[in-house]
Design a protein around this nucleic acid. Structure first.
Length: 362
DNA sequence: AGATGTGTTGAG
DNA sequence: TCAACACATCTG
């Protein structure tokens, strides 16, 4: 189906440079939430006042928009399906917002022939074309992440701005710059595939000194069970694993990865706070986990600053991008030309060697 | 605790 | 593929 506009998959993540959306941010912009033409979905709405009062208290109202589902708290969730699996796009206050999120995802996932709630982006329209470029220059995961965090519009606009600067002042946007900087390392980066991303919460970068890895992802990508005896999937292995994280700079980080029964969550503990400090991670920043396709099963981590935090305040004394042992880019806190968002990306080799998982007592 | 996201199921 | 809905999980 989605043949034509082909999708650049996860791969597009950060290696993608180039593309530079002309300008506008259009469509996604909050329009009238109610404008969307309803989509066929057979499901119906039935919102009669007759017997609703009672029913309403029990049944959630259906949405008239495709991909939009009601939430118990009165909000609306957006979801799209792919390969028999649901991809959650986040929750929204207005149905219209959720519908737009769905539309955006649909166009990224299904390309031109995506069925949308509102008119789809048209390549003919310059504005739409710009957004399409933006869409396809990001992995599905990234788009989903933006939708979930409600930062899609911001990023779209940001990319527009960057493009302007780029064309005028030769500045490259994050991805481009990073790819550029990576140079040879680019190959390595490209050989990775994103597993998942997480927007770090205040507690992830706070005093708790730990990063909570969403359960789903933890169990899917970072199985704790590893070898050990017991048959069941996840026995309470509160001991965890000691993993060696190899920084692209060559520096080795050792993080403890374990499961906390108390909060029933998977976490990176020992070593994490150091990472947060060195990278100057802030709540809202996104940490992405990738795995190299290489047989060595190396895992990587990249992180990006919270969308939109660029220009503004965020005081950052010293920032730099280090690649494979070399500090390529350094910017003094004072707003020198480069001082935008230079905590851009950092690649970490995450060694997932069975050997290193040792640990035992921690 | 309230919000968010998932497991499941059944319909189309 | 999709929505309904119960409920597990997460966040503040």
């Amino acid at each position: 189906m989605y043949s034509s506009s082909t999708c650049i998959d996860e791969s597009t993540t950060s290696d993608s440079l180039s593309l530079s959306p002309p300008s506008p941010l259009l469509s996604q912009a909050p329009k009238s939430p109610e404008s969307p033409c309803r989509v066929g979905s057979g499901t119906s709405v039935i919102l009669d006042s007759e017997n609703s009062v009672e029913a309403e208290s029990k049944k959630l109202p259906s949405s008239r928009f495709k991909g939009v589902v009601p939430q118990p708290n009165g909000r609306w969730g957006a979801q799209i399906y792919e390969k028999h699996q649901r991809v959650w796009l986040g929750t929204f206050v207005e149905q219209g917002e959720a519908a737009r999120a769905y539309d955006t995802a649909a166009q990224r996932f299904r390309g031109r022939d995506a069925v949308t709630n509102v008119k789809p982006l048209s390549p003919e329209n310059p504005d739409d074309a710009a957004e399409l470029t933006f869409l396809n220059s990001h992995s599905k995961a990234e788009i989903v992440d933006m939708l979930r965090k409600h930062t899609y519009n911001e990023e779209l606009e940001q990319s527009r701005r960057k493009h302007e600067v780029d064309t005028n002042g030769k500045r490259l946007d994050n991805n481009a710059r990073i790819s550029h900087i990576l140079g040879g390392a680019d190959k390595l980066w490209k050989s990775t595939r994103q597993l998942f991303e997480k927007s770090v919460t205040p507690s992830d970068v706070g005093k708790l000194n730990r990063l909570v890895i969403p359960k789903q992802h933890a169990e899917k990508h970072f199985p704790l069970q590893s070898c050990c005896s017991s048959g069941s999937a996840f026995s309470s292995s509160s001991k965890g694993l000691l993993l060696n994280f190899k920084d692209v700079t060559g520096k080795v980080w050792r993080f403890r990865y374990s499961y906390w029964n108390s909060s029933q969550s998977y976490v990176l503990t020992k070593g994490w706070s150091r990472f947060v400090k060195e990278k100057n991670l802030k709540a809202g920043d996104v940490v992405g986990f990738h795995r190299s396709s290489e047989p060595d099963q190396q895992l990587f981590i990249d992180w990006k600053a919270k969308a939109g935090s660029g220009s503004g305040g965020v005081s950052e004394p010293v920032q730099m991008v280090r690649l494979f042992g070399v500090n390529i880019f350094q910017v003094p806190g004072s707003g020198s030309c480069g001082g935008k968002r230079d905590r851009d990306v950092e690649l970490l080799a995450f060694e997932w060697s069975k050997k290193s998982r040792v640990i035992g007592a921690l």
